[in-house]
Amino acid sequence: MTALEIDSLSKSYGELRALNEVSFEVPAGQIFGFVGSNGAGKTTTMRIILGVLRSDAGEVRWKGARVDADVRRRIGYMPEERGLYPRMKVGDQLVYLARLHGLSKERAVAAMEQWTQVLGVDERRGDEVDKLSLGNQQRVQLASALVHEPDILVLDEPFSGLDPVAVDVMSDVLRSQADRGVPVIFSSHQLELVERLSDRVGIVARGSMVASGPIDELRATDTSQWILALASATAPPAAPPGVSITESAPGRWLVEADSAESAQAVLASAVQQGTVTEFSPVRPTLTDLFRDVVNAPEEVA
């Protein structure tokens, strides 16, 4: 199986249970958005994947085999904290890091030139890292994760401190890496960005994975809800059996139906009544889901 598998990871620090049997997988070519409050266990999970920490139980597998040192050399990692040499020049540093991963000098230089250009810091190759803005440091940090052509990408808060243009650039880079078959894991507190960019999402709370799967599946609800708006109407259309209609604003109604077919019947009736200006499904956003699962009371064993 071509996937990065995180299987039942547990980790404790004395009395503190940092991870409790966390499991998820990231198929090759997909982007996995990893979200949770500060201290929920995201960074601990990423560090176990990298081998920086050792789990108390569980394992990490790539292509069905346990991840070892050879596989970890093929991982591109971007920590949340700065992991660069502040007084080293950007170009020299990226070449050095690429060569540590086994690239020849020629390939390392070519990779450095490619990624500094793609990420918009090619004019800063001769500058020391600590002379750069925080946003440009973040771009160089991503370049350091990409410069050795990794098979797996693990990025901890890669969008932190970036302006909207830089966010778009980095989003395009992550998608291009997934398109070439790389499984990408990234954490972020920008939930709208996670929802837009990710193929799958995992929500971790208090060290446990509380929701995981494709965005559409996570946002699915048992009840069908729709927003209906009419150009000129003072009353809603008649509600067939299994449907409730409540006014949310003048000329706008919330339609709650027991099936999509019932909702379509309301739409057909509304068309007969006047000009329909909106009829759109209402589904919870990732932000809504996050609030629900993070604020849910903790179960007592």
Results as ranks from 00 to 15, higher is better:
Ser133Met: 08
Ser133Ile: 07
Leu134Tyr: 12
Leu134Ile: 11
Gln137His: 05
Gln137Met: 14
Gln137Gly: 08
Gln138Cys: 06
Arg139Ser: 14
Arg139Phe: 01
Arg139Tyr: 01
Leu142Trp: 03
Leu142Glu: 06
Ala143Val: 08
Ser144Met: 07
Ser144Tyr: 02
Ala145Trp: 00
Ala145Met: 00
Leu146Tyr: 02
Leu146Ser: 02
His148Met: 10
His148Arg: 09
Pro150Gly: 12
Asp151Val: 02
Asp151Ser: 15
Asp151Gln: 15
Ile152Leu: 08
Ile152Pro: 00
Ile152Thr: 01
Ile152Arg: 01
Val154Tyr: 04
Leu155Phe: 10
Leu155Gly: 10
Glu157Thr: 11
Glu157Phe: 12
Phe159Leu: 10
Phe159Ile: 06
Ser160Thr: 10
Gly161Cys: 07
Gly161Met: 05
Asp163Asn: 05
Val165Leu: 14
Ala166Phe: 03
Ala166Leu: 07
Met170Ala: 06
Asp172Trp: 04
Val173Gly: 01
Val173His: 01
Arg175Lys: 14
Ser176Cys: 06
Ser176Glu: 14
Ser176Trp: 02
Ser176Pro: 05
Gln177Tyr: 06
Asp179Thr: 03
Asp179Pro: 01
Arg180Phe: 08
Gly181Ser: 08
Pro183Trp: 09
Ile185Leu: 15
Ile185Ser: 09
Ile185Lys: 04
Ile185Arg: 03
Phe186Thr: 05
Ser187His: 03
Ser188Ile: 05
His189Glu: 12
His189Gly: 10
Gln190Val: 13
Leu191Cys: 11
Glu192Asn: 14
Glu192Val: 10
Glu192Phe: 09
Val194Glu: 04
Val194Gly: 08
Val194His: 04
Val194Leu: 09
Glu195Gly: 08
Leu197Pro: 03
Leu197Gln: 07
Ser198Ala: 15
Arg200Tyr: 00
Arg200Glu: 08
Val204Cys: 03
Arg206Glu: 12
Gly207Arg: 02
Gly207Thr: 06
Ser208Val: 13
Met209Trp: 00
Met209Asp: 00
Ser212His: 07
Ser212Gly: 13
Ser212Leu: 07
Gly213Ile: 00
Ile215Gln: 03
Asp216Thr: 14
Glu217Lys: 12
Leu218Trp: 00
Thr221Cys: 06
Thr221Arg: 12
Asp222Asn: 13
Asp222Thr: 13
Gln225Gly: 05
Ala229Asp: 10
Leu230His: 10
Leu230Gly: 10
Ser232Leu: 08
Ser232Pro: 00
Ala233Gly: 09
Thr234Arg: 14
Ala235Pro: 00
Pro236Asn: 05
Pro236Gln: 03
Pro236Arg: 01
Pro237Gln: 08
Pro240Tyr: 12
Gly242Thr: 00
Gly242Ser: 01
Val243Tyr: 02
Ser244Tyr: 08
Thr246Gly: 13
Thr246His: 04
Glu247Asp: 05
Ser248Val: 15
Ala249Phe: 04
Pro250Trp: 11
Pro250Ser: 10
Gly251Lys: 04
Arg252Cys: 07
Leu254His: 07
Leu254Trp: 01
Leu254Asn: 09
Leu254Gln: 14
Val255Tyr: 09
Glu256Arg: 15
Glu256Ala: 14
Glu256Pro: 06
Ala257Gln: 04
Asp258Val: 11
Ser259Gly: 11
Ala260Thr: 13
Ala260Val: 12
Ser262Leu: 14
Ser262Val: 10
Ser262Thr: 13
Ala263Val: 08
Ala263Arg: 03
Ala265His: 12
Ala265Lys: 14
